[in-house]
Write a protein that binds this DNA or RNA. Structure first.
Length: 576
RNA sequence: CGGGGCGUGGCGCAGUCUGGUAGCGCGCACGCUUGGGGUGCGUGAGGUCACCGGUUCAAAUCCGGUCGCCCCGACCA
């Protein structure tokens, strides 16, 4: 492509409404423009990268035995009412009516639509298993879209759904997809980590996320420095060390009340009493499916709501409001404690057997000290309730410690089981002629988000540094002065030679100053830059510069096309 | 949904408090100049100051309302 014949509106300055680097660079590099909140135009440069991402996804999905199809973006309310998600999904589901006043929504995901398709098309176990995928635009009316393509309302997603007769076969496909995802992200040249994940709104019981490692990531992930255990922080397990609280204090004097006027938070009381936060038992009150429940964790720990929800077998949990707490306990928040509390109470493992602890006294402006768990109170249950932190022992191996990193979720695989098939009557007849619900799995990749994630991980002060496999162009030709006959002829010739060799090449044929072209080339991040100037041509050479490390090499003009093609091919093979 | 900020040529911003001819940088067009890291000089085009209403002799500026965009929060007792 000739630069002068396409639209690459680069900007010198950061757009005022962009916060993260990928958003700034995508806009500055002329790849995207915002149309409205959370919705973007993809300009030619962006579309080229998107297509390369899609091609890799298609090749690997096809290789894994999946079949591509295309489902509608609009779907009728009835399907969503069947699965129950019409009511559950909330405002994220963009709803509208057609001219006949029938309710519709834009698809935020497609379990309902595909399950409906399959239940109508499949009758027999002989027709299973299969895996169907699509690459398509999704719409989720996010509460707060942000960070450009990272969390848009409209976005492009690859979603796949597999259908099986047995749990074992479904798990086989789950692992097949897991391996496929590894290949996909490896080919794209990204540093990523698969992590155990919570299943969230999609539902199901087994799930992994694929996280692209980047400081700006929205997710925290815990990983072992010794073995390959890694999990989303929402899921990361804490190794149970029985009676880990015993070593806190040896005395067993009866607990006693101390005045702590106005000191409500652990930090405040800890400072007031000159005791470390780990000596405290923090009492939080949650509303679990309508019931108020007290949850105890050590003062320096934080509650993990996903774990708590599981421990309580609740569908919905939320922190109770101060008013609700005060009404139920007659104690203002900040002074709650497990001794004499009239609420169902569950406690983190770290609370078990603790001695010499500090808790609220269930009385305004007072706390208890020297609390002994076994002597003074008994929770209804002990469970893993706290969030893992850096330095925790690995739950899977002996030697390892957990590290916390940040990541951008670019893919997730779920084992769904019969969650949708049972509700929506997607069944098959087994060899004995009995009707059985279909086992399902689903597998997503955030195609447009990958664009942002790749940039978050691959950029410098001058702009984007695309991995070869997803770069909009592999090579940019930069004639120092395109109006100079000799330079122009050399550039045009090399351009045609590279095109003949199937290299994705962009020719900067604009009548611009060299400095402008250099800056733009760095900004849009093309991996190889070929500078064609008088100095080089005098020696019969052009200059090859690698965007990633800035390394420079002079190569003879007559060998240039072949050597550049070989360099591109080599880089692509190295990544895959 | 709560809090905060912003809306002025294509982009980034000043001007608003204290009402009185709409400005700067970049970009854009043209001419000369320059040609290996955003050249230099000159000339020029381009704005219903988000929108609606009000106050006033006079509104980008004051008042009321609406819309849009951004950020933070919507959990740690």
């Amino acid at each position: 492509m000739r630069w002068s014949r396409t639209l690459i509106p680069t900007l010198k300055e950061d757009p005022a409404d962009a916060e993260v680097v990928s958003h700034k660079l995508l806009v500055r590099a002329g790849m995207i423009r915002q149309l409205t909140r959370g919705i973007y135009d993809y300009l030619p440069l962006a579309l080229r990268s998107l297509k390369k991402i899609e091609t890799i996804v298609r090749e690997e999905m096809d290789r894994a035995g999946a079949q591509e199809l295309l489902l509608p973006i609009a779907s009728p309310a009835e399907l969503w009412q069947e699965s129950g998600r019409w009511d559950v999904y909330g405002k994220e589901l963009l709803r509208f009516k057609d001219r006949h006043e029938r309710d519709f929504c834009l698809g935020p995901t497609h379990e309902e639509v595909i399950t409906d398709l399959v239940r109508r098309a499949v009758r027999s176990y002989r027709e299973l298993p299969f895996n169907l995928y699509q690459i398509q635009t999704k719409f989720r009316d996010e509460v707060r879209p942000r960070f450009g393509l990272m969390r848009g309302r409209e976005f492009i997603m690859k979603d796949a759904y597999s259908f099986h007769t047995t749990v074992e076969d479904c798990r086989r496909e789950y692992h097949n997809m897991f391996d496929t995802y590894r290949r996909i992200f490896t080919r794209m040249g990204l540093k990523f980590r698969p992590v155990e994940a919570d299943t969230g709104a999609i539902g199901g019981s087994l799930s992994h996320e694929f996280q692209v490692l980047a400081e700006s990531g929205e997710d925290a992930i815990a990983s072992c420095d010794h073995c390959d255990y890694a999990a989303n922080i929402q899921k990361a397990e804490v190794k149970v060390r029985p009676h880990s609280g015993r070593d806190v204090k040896e005395t067993t004097a009866a607990h006693k009340k101390v005045a702590t006027p106005g000191k409500k938070t652990v930090a405040e009381v800890a400072e007031f009493l000159s005791l470390p936060p780990e000596r405290f038992i923090k009492t939080m009150v949650y509303k679990a499916d309508g019931e108020l429940v007290a949850v105890l964790v050590r003062g320096d720990h934080e509650i993990n709501e996903v774990k708590m929800k599981d421990a309580l077998h609740a569908d919905e949990v939320a922190l109770a409001s101060e008013a609700e707490v005060e009404k139920a306990t007659r104690v203002p928040t900040g002074f709650l404690g497990p001794i004499g509390l009239k609420l169902r109470t569950i406690a983190d493992h770290a609370i078990q057997g603790v001695r010499g602890a500090v808790t609220g006294a269930n009385e305004t402006d007072a706390h208890f000290v020297d609390v002994d768990q076994e002597r003074d109170f008994t929770p209804a249950a002990f469970a893993d309730l706290r969030a893992a932190v850096a330095g925790d022992a690995c739950p899977r191996c002996e030697a390892g410690k957990l590290e916390i990193h940040r990541g951008i979720e670019v893919g997730q695989v779920f084992y769904l089981g019969t969650k949708y098939s049972a509700k929506m009557g997607a069944t098959y007849l087994d060899p004995e002629g009995r009707e059985q619900p279909i086992e399902m799995g689903c597998y997503g990749i955030g195609v447009s988000r990958l664009l942002a994630a790749a940039i978050e991980q691959n950029h410098d002060a001058n702009g984007i540094i695309w991995p070869f496999a997803i770069a909009p162009f592999e090579v940019i030709l930069l004639p120092i002065n395109y109006l100079d006959e000799r330079i122009r002829a050399a550039a045009d010739r090399l351009y045609e030679e590279l095109r003949a060799r199937k290299v994705d090449v962009l020719l900067d044929d604009r009548d611009e100053r060299p400095g402008v072209k250099f800056k733009d080339a760095d900004l849009i991040g093309v991996p190889l830059r070929i500078t064609i100037g008088a100095k080089g041509l005098d020696k019969g050479c052009v200059e090859v510069r690698r965007r990633r490390d800035g390394s420079v090499e002079e190569i003879p003009v007559d060998q240039a096309a072949d050597r550049i093609r070989d360099a591109v091919a080599g880089a692509l093979i190295a990544a895959a």
